[in-house]
Amino acid sequence: MGIESQLKQLKIEELLTMLKHDDAEVRRKAVHSLEKMETSAFTLEIMERLLGLVADKDRFVRFDVVLALARLNETPLFPVLLERLLSLTRDKRKVVRATAASVFAECTDAAATPEVTARLWELTTDEDKNVRAEAITALRQTKALSSSPETIARLLMLTNDEDRWVGAVAVEAVTDFGHVAATPSLVERMFALLSDSQESLRWTAARAFGKLATVVATPGVIERLVALTTDTGRGVRHAAAMALGELGQQAAAPEVIGGLLNLLTDKNPDVRSHAVEALQRMGNVTAFPIARERLWGLMENKSKAIRFMAARLLREMDEVGSVSARLQEFWKPYIGISTVILLDSFNEEYCSIGDLAEEELRLLAAKQRP
Rank of each mutant, 00 (worst) to 15 (best):
A206P: 12
E277D: 13
V285A: 00
A205I: 01
T229R: 04
Q249I: 12
E277T: 10
R202P: 06
V236I: 11
D266S: 08
R237L: 06
G258W: 13
L212M: 13
Q250I: 06
V256G: 03
K267H: 07
V285P: 05
G283R: 05
I290H: 00
V221D: 09
G245Y: 11
G248S: 11
Q280F: 01
G259K: 02
Q249F: 02
F209A: 01
T286E: 02
V276Y: 05
A227V: 14
I257A: 01
A243N: 08
A291T: 03
M242W: 15
R294Y: 07
E300P: 12
F209P: 02
M299C: 10
G259V: 08
F288Y: 10
T232Q: 13
M242T: 15
L263P: 02
A213H: 01
V256C: 05
L279A: 03
H238T: 05
M242S: 10
Q249S: 13
R292M: 12
L228W: 04
A287S: 13
P289W: 00
H238G: 02
V216R: 02
T286F: 07
N262R: 14
T230E: 15
T265C: 06
R292D: 08
W203T: 09
G233P: 12
G210L: 10
A240G: 03
D270I: 09
V226I: 15
M242C: 07
T218M: 06
P254C: 00
G258V: 02
E255D: 14
R237H: 10
Q249N: 04
V276I: 09
K267C: 03
T214G: 01
L295P: 00
G220V: 07
S273I: 01
R292V: 03
G283Y: 03
E277P: 00
R272A: 02
V271E: 06
L264T: 10
G283A: 07
M242Y: 14
L228Q: 08
G235Q: 09
A252R: 11
A227C: 04
A275E: 09
T286I: 15
